[in-house]
Design a protein around this nucleic acid. Sequence first.
DNA 1: TCTGGGGTCCTAGGACCC
DNA 2: TCTGGGGTCCTAGGACCC
Length: 419
Amino acid sequence: MYDYYQCNARDVLCIDLKSFFASVSCIEKGLNPLTTKLAVVGDTKRQGSVVLAATPPLKALGIKTGSRLFEIPHRSDIYIINPSMLKYIQVSSRISAIALQYVAPEDFHQYSIDEFFMDITDSYHLFAQTPSHMARILQQEIYNKTQIFSTIGIGSNPLLAKLAMDLEAKRTSEGVAEWRYHDVPRKLWDVEPLTEMWGINKRTEKKLNKKGIFRIGDLAHYPVEYLKRDFGILGVDLHLHANGIDESIIRQPHVIKGKSYGKSQILMRDYQFHELKTVISEQIDEVFYRVREKKLYPTTIAFTVGYADKGGIHKQFTKKDYFTSTMQVVSLIWRYLEEYAETDRLFRTVGVSFSNLRDSRLRQMNLFEAPEEVKREIIESYLDELRRKYGKEIVMRASSLTESGTLRLRKGLIAGHKG
DNA sequence: TCTGGGGTCCTAGGACCC
DNA sequence: TCTGGGGTCCTAGGACCC
């Protein structure tokens, strides 16, 4: 047993916007999310497309996030629509702004587009009697101003707040639940299967089951040294989390270790090998544009291509200096693929990712750098200006106009979704 | 009836240096 | 000459999140 008196004792809220994409899309159409059957899917034209969000009445029919479009029954009372990412981002920002009326920015953490944390320890007194009261005030205000329902978990640390939200608040009609350390044995330890808990998915569950661990309580009582031996740091985290312990404090955000920017796509059809070069170029162009906007250059670039049936190639390259142009990266990748890809097979997925980013402002001009390189950089920065002025898609490579180009199709898409 | 897209973190093993 | 060991960087691959 742990001495919970030694642990963080804060008042943290974890707020989840209920069926967010689906709700926003309903509201946009003047429909009520609580009574309408609506699903937002990645792309309505693809039968295999995944469901990104579904309203509660549709979920009641067995359709959930991750279901496939072809699993949704053909019925006149079911709406199936494409995402409107711009709209979702707008609504999400409005809601975050509401939350920021109640905490200082450093006590606020946006976890994803539809989930955020607030440490209200120092501020809730100004607005409410108790943390739970504060949660209800916030929930009500979000609803009044946006028509979006939220579920809120309250806990003594971010983990307990998240667990309270996932495992209890979501299942109640009011959508608020509070978990303190003393609730852990009663509320957390009976949880089963293990995948119910944040941080445990199928693979880990399987490995834990082999050890005879089936409930979170089993995990909490399993000797931590064995978990450490078999799972490393993750094993220690599993042990602590099963005991409700999480020492992170929102005001001291952890530094992200290896930030990366990437772009990946599942292609609309199977591609032949020679067609890939265009797509890869487009992706690299886009990611370069994004990192340049942040005044960064990558020292490591990675790419993945997946065959249509199965398997694929993943490779990363690191350059002491750093990569500065699309051409440079494309030719490196292409040379590799020409040598190692099975060029007579068909391809279905492509992705690139940049990491190990360096601040370009610190850049020292390398006197030995090929003049061609410098020229390309100048050209790219000029094109960036055009992109900023007229939008990312205004500048297309000539190859994008060929059959294999995807840019024209993607025009009007944001974050890979139809906007 | 294959296929969302964007991320983060961890580990193991090899290369290389002192 | 069968031998040391630690630090750092890099790559591949796995796992999980929303």
